[in-house]
Simulated assay, not measured.
Amino acid sequence: MTGGIGIPACVQCGTRSNPCRCKVVGPTLGFLAFVVAGVVEWPVGALVYCFRHMKGRRIMAHPASVVYPSVSNRIPI
């Protein structure tokens, strides 16, 4: 039995941003940026949510609604 660590990759097919119609690098880096932003922003958003519900929700939604799409769309491959 062989063991190994696989490299996680996100694949987005059907895109028109490149001739191959598949993206790997952009979505993968977008996911990594999403995780880093989430580690920082979700606890802050949870704390803010205790006092200001809508502001806390916006902070917690920021990685998914702003960080991931902006990083993923900037890299066409």
Rank of each mutant, 00 (worst) to 15 (best):
Q12Y: 08
S17V: 15
I75V: 15
V67P: 00
A61Y: 01
G56D: 02
G14C: 06
R52T: 07
M54H: 11
K55Y: 07
V36H: 01
C10W: 08
F34W: 14
V25W: 09
C13Q: 07
C22V: 15
T28E: 04
R58W: 06
V24I: 15
A64I: 03
I5N: 08
G26H: 08
P19N: 01
A33Y: 01
R58Q: 08
Y49I: 00
G30W: 01
K23D: 13
S17H: 05
G56W: 00
P63R: 02
C22P: 00
I77L: 14
Y68K: 01
S72K: 14
P8D: 05
V40N: 11
V44G: 06
V44K: 06
G56L: 01
M60Q: 10
P27I: 04
Y49Q: 04
A64H: 03
P76I: 12
L47V: 11
C50A: 06
N73T: 11
V36I: 11
V11R: 06
G6K: 06
I77A: 12
P19A: 00
V39K: 10
V48R: 05
T15I: 07
G30Y: 01
V48A: 11
V24G: 07
A61Q: 07
V40H: 06
A46F: 09
C13W: 04
C50F: 12
I77K: 08
T2H: 11
G6T: 08
P76G: 06
G3W: 09
S65R: 09
V67I: 15
C10F: 12
A9F: 07
V67F: 02
L47H: 09
S70D: 02
P8V: 02
R21W: 05
T2I: 09
G30P: 03
R21A: 11
V36D: 00
F31Q: 09
F51K: 04
M54G: 06
P76D: 14
G26E: 06
F34L: 15
C10E: 13
K55F: 06
P43T: 10
T2Q: 12
I75C: 13
M1L: 08
I59Y: 01
R74G: 11
H53P: 03
H62E: 02
G14M: 05
